[in-house]
Computed example of a mutant assay.
Amino acid sequence: MKTTPQTVLKFIVGAVIVTAVLFLVWYFSSIVVYILVSAVLAVMGRPLVKRLSDLRIRGWRVPRWLAALVTLVVIWAIFAACFSLFVPLVFNKINQFAHVDFTVVMSSISEPVARAQHDLQRLFALPESTFSLSDELTTAMRQIIDLDSLNRLFSSVIGVVVSLVIAVFSISFITFFFLKEEGLFYAMVTAVFPEHYHENITRALDSVTLLLGRYFTGILTESLLLMIAVSLVMMAFGMTMADAAFIGLIMGAMNVVPYAGPLIGGILSVLVGIVTPIEGMPVGYTVLVIVCTLLVIKGMDDFILQPTLYSKRVKAHPLEVFLVILIAGSLAGILGMLLAIPSYTVLRVFAKEFFSQFSLVRKLTEKI
């Protein structure tokens, strides 16, 4: 296609509009997140709403608003059941960390620490009097899980709880109306654009809903399977159910963050193994079990599940996905990596609808 002044002008106008929309999305990010989460919940609950709305009890048909309300209650009941299983594990472990005797912990790993210090001193020619790996590890562990840090954590939890209450109320309110009035989310989005773009916007929203639904379903399934697998293997090696479930929870939750999440989860899991080793076994054995288990299971996950999840489910090349995650991580850290794939998927779909005349856009969106 030849480049004409009209084409360039259309591209510039489109780029300005996209920039303005992205700025508004960033400025009102919390509200946008509420709306998007509500839209996802509405998509998940729509089949139940339809089934309930079709019910007839002695000639009385269940009204749509009641079906939407029951569906919303069911959704939150499922989330509450999940939290009730895992929240006690987290708080019990925090309480356990608060009463850790670091002298005992460091003495249990004194031999491997001494060997590591000897190797570091030989490698970097460090005098023995200026460096003590044992003291450095003790200081670092005290800073990570000391009582003051835990108190600050509990103080911040109060603020998080207040924000969470506001978020739950807002999401519940928005989700109820999305469930009650089918097509309301589409109407809200299309209302922002001129009428002659409504067909393009509707097609884009259909594609986004399908792709993101596949992506989120896949990543939640992957995290759940990883959590179960890690927990079962840990228990098979003699770890208590509480500690095994806690490590499984860490790995399952951190697995949602691409690439960096499992590494952070692995470090935290090793820390748990050092503080609370397998009963009757040395700390080194516990750490070895944790490291080997995570390497094997995550290796299988990376080579079997993730290629399907991160590339086929959003219909993008694996290298393309990796570079997007890397760029997003450089710009916005962990949060950027978490939102990279969903955001990129939305941008690709809308680019296909409005900028398909450009060869780069056609190349990036040819599989959608």
Rank of each mutant, 00 (worst) to 15 (best):
M1D: 05
T4F: 05
K10D: 14
V13Y: 13
I17F: 14
A20V: 15
L22D: 12
F23Q: 10
F23I: 14
L24A: 13
S29I: 13
V37Q: 02
R56W: 00
R58F: 11
R64W: 10
R64E: 13
W65P: 00
L66F: 07
A67H: 06
I75G: 04
W76F: 12
W76L: 05
A81H: 07
V87M: 12
V90H: 03
K93R: 15
F97K: 04
V100D: 02
D101P: 01
F102M: 05
T103H: 07
A114P: 05
Q117K: 15
H118A: 15
L120Q: 14
R122C: 13
P127H: 11
L133W: 08
E136R: 07
T138Y: 00
T139A: 11
M141V: 02
R142C: 09
I145L: 14
L153N: 12
V162T: 07
I166D: 07
I174F: 09
K180L: 12
K180M: 14
E182L: 08
G183W: 02
V189D: 03
H196D: 14
H196C: 08
R203I: 06
A204D: 09
D206V: 14
V208K: 04
Y215R: 09
L224P: 11
L225F: 15
L225I: 15
L226P: 10
A229D: 07
A229K: 05
V233A: 11
M234V: 02
A236C: 04
T240P: 00
A245G: 02
F246G: 01
I250E: 00
M251Y: 03
L263Y: 04
I264C: 00
I267L: 11
V270S: 07
V272S: 02
G273E: 01
P277I: 03
E279I: 09
T286C: 04
V287M: 06
I290F: 03
I290D: 02
C292S: 14
L295K: 10
I297V: 15
I297D: 11
K298Y: 15
G299Q: 09
F303G: 08
P307C: 12
P307K: 10
K312N: 09
V314E: 02
V321A: 13
F322M: 10
F322H: 03
I325D: 08
I327S: 04
G329N: 02
S330N: 04
A332M: 02
G333A: 02
G336Y: 03
A340E: 01
L347T: 14
A351Q: 06
V361L: 12
K363H: 15
